[in-house]
């Protein structure tokens, strides 16, 4: 029998949306005087059941606001679902977006330690993996330079290097590859292929269907908090593209 890496049962998530641009004391005071408070409940996920097996690379696709990022946040344990149960077997490493978790005034090295520890490594583990991290990021000459002097590509490489060296069993990627240049994207793809060979589980949110086709072994299409389709990459991507083309025709 196959091992489940992620088991989601009847997951629902609703957000309370207030119709005020800023939450502030003024906003609260004003809303107290208003006849009816305009708080709307937005159902980001609605009774989602999903099992992801160990070693799968699953592409999560869907239009903006379909609940992809919420689902990823629930798996990463940063958001708690309103209902349902989550079971995650194995160490999760989210790949952070450009510059998140980096302090511009600190050197690359200091930031590597901070990033590594926040992703669950110990100091000693980081020290052991440091040469490999620096080599992967191609930052041998700049590792003692403050990160503020880095180009965005360098920051991206360093963040990616730390994340892939945390030895995660489950990797979460939310549109993180869209930023880098050609060379970096190739490097990431190679790393993803390494992960796949090593039997790690990857969850990837992307709008780039070519990328999804290239790496995903299975695709889940979310729409308005429901799973619209779940299956072989080729089929689901085709269905999704058909749907978006139709949507485009309607709006024209």
């Amino acid at each position: 029998m196959k091992d489940a890496a992620i088991l989601l049962e009847h997951i629902s998530k609703s957000y309370r949306l207030s119709h005020q641009p800023y939450s502030s004391l003024k906003g609260i005071l004003l809303s107290m005087f208003r006849y009816r408070r305009r708080i709307e409940v937005h159902q980001a996920l609605n009774d989602v059941n999903l099992t992801i097996w160990r070693g799968e690379t699953v592409g999560l696709i869907g239009v903006n606001g379909s609940g992809k990022s919420t689902l990823l946040a629930i798996i990463a344990r940063v958001i708690r679902p309103t209902a349902g149960t989550v079971q995650v077997n194995g160490r999760v490493a989210p790949l952070l977006q450009l510059g998140v978790g980096f302090h511009p005034d600190l050197t690359g090295l200091e930031n590597v330690y901070f990033n590594g520890i926040i992703l669950g490594l110990t100091r000693q583990q980081i020290a052991e993996r440091l040469p490999s991290i620096v080599r992967f990021a191609e930052l041998e000459e700049f590792i003692d330079t403050p990160v503020r002097a880095y180009s965005s590509g360098m920051v991206l490489r360093l963040g990616f290097a730390v994340a892939v060296h945390t030895d995660p069993e489950i990797i979460l990627m939310d549109e993180v590859l869209a930023v880098g240049d050609e060379a970096f994207q190739h490097k990431c793809l190679r790393k993803i292929q390494d992960f796949q060979r090593e039997g790690r589980t990857i969850l990837l949110v992307s709008h780039d269907m070519n990328q999804v086709r290239q790496v995903a072994t299975r695709v889940v299409w979310l729409h308005q908090g429901h799973i619209m389709a779940d299956g072989a990459t080729k089929d689901v991507v085709a269905q999704y593209l058909e749907f978006t083309a139709q949507l485009e025709r309607q709006t024209l």
């Binding site: 946040a73 990463a76 344990r77 940063v78 999760v92 989210p94 952070l96 977006q97 998140v100 978790g101 926040i118 992703l119 939310d174």
Partner: peptide, 9 residues
């Protein structure tokens, strides 16, 4: 907050 939105701790 950006870190809080992505990483569990």
């Amino acid at each position: 907050i950006q870190l809080v939105k992505k990483v569990y701790f």
